[in-house]
Amino acid sequence: MQKKSLLFICTGNSARSQLAEALFRQMAGAEFEVYSAGTAPEPIDPRVFAVLNARHISAENLHSKDLSSLNQRHFDYAITLCDKAHQSCVTQVKAAQILAWDFADPKAKAGTKAFDVVLNELSERIKYFLLFSQKYRVKPEQLSDALSFYKALADDTRLKTLLLIQQQQELCVCELTAALDETQPKISRHLAQLRNAAILQDRRHGQWVFYRLADNLPGWALEVLRLTASNNSALIAANLNKLNEMGDRPQRAALCN
């Protein structure tokens, strides 16, 4: 599997970003190519090497470098470690995703304790980053599923159907017909497409068929729907109002005539 590329950025590239580079390489060097740079680079603080050596973390190849020396590279991730670097580097770095992690500069304090604190905080943040990136990564064998999923979201009716079902957990054809103000044949056709793409699954209760998100829908797909819903609540607000106007919602079967 091709390695992802990641760049840590801080102002001086003399402490925080060097600690992050060495630590991330130890934790996930098999999956990521890891770099660091500074917007105004300075020599590496000797305490960086002391702290890394005490933790048995390799400091091999660590050196301070200017962000401009990497402006021809495109990274999968760029992570800024101070607000100043984030403000000044956004237009300089080429990356698919730019994340902002803000850590206090340990150089301002005497001794190595502040460096140890930053290293511990970086370790926790990197663990969460790796858990998230691995959980929601689309694997090569899932690529066809990903294409089907995003094609489904490209249609207005299907996207709203998925968001409504996610919000309500389960809906039948008549509820979607009322909420979306569409004909039953059209809603049924879209539901069939979503079911064939393994995005929805159905449950028969008496004469009624209810639809919900598929139990085996990948985590990354669920996260896409969650983020879409949380950041675009107005998209289905009117549809939810129409759904609520149907009457006594708990009497689901009685509404589906």
Rank of each mutant, 00 (worst) to 15 (best):
E170N: 04
A96I: 05
C172H: 01
A234P: 08
H63P: 09
S123P: 09
A221K: 13
S123T: 14
R158G: 03
K4D: 00
L243G: 08
M27L: 07
K4Y: 13
A197F: 07
Y35L: 00
A20W: 07
D102P: 14
N231K: 09
Q169C: 08
Q168W: 06
F49I: 06
A234Q: 12
L130F: 04
N257R: 00
Q92N: 11
D83W: 12
N61S: 10
L240K: 14
L70A: 12
L235Y: 02
A22T: 01
R249W: 04
Y35I: 02
S233L: 15
D215P: 09
K242G: 04
V173P: 04
F24P: 08
L147M: 12
A30E: 06
S233E: 13
K94E: 13
K109T: 05
L222K: 14
Q207H: 14
A78E: 06
Q18I: 10
L159G: 02
D66F: 00
L52I: 03
K139F: 08
V173K: 01
D156V: 10
S69V: 05
S58H: 07
T112E: 15
N71H: 09
K135D: 10
L131G: 01
K94S: 14
T39N: 05
Q26K: 15
D215K: 08
W101D: 00
A178E: 13
L62K: 12
F49Q: 02
Q87P: 08
K4S: 09
L52N: 00
N216Q: 11
S133T: 11
L176F: 06
Q207V: 08
L143C: 08
S148D: 01
A179M: 07
R226Q: 14
N239L: 11
I126P: 07
Q87T: 12
A178W: 09
L52V: 00
E141F: 14
R252D: 08
T112S: 12
R73Q: 14
Q134R: 14
R252F: 09
T39W: 05
E141W: 14
F75K: 01
T183Y: 12
Q168D: 05
R212A: 08
S5G: 05
F49T: 03
E124N: 10
F103S: 04
K84V: 15
V224A: 04
A54P: 06
G247V: 12
P218W: 01
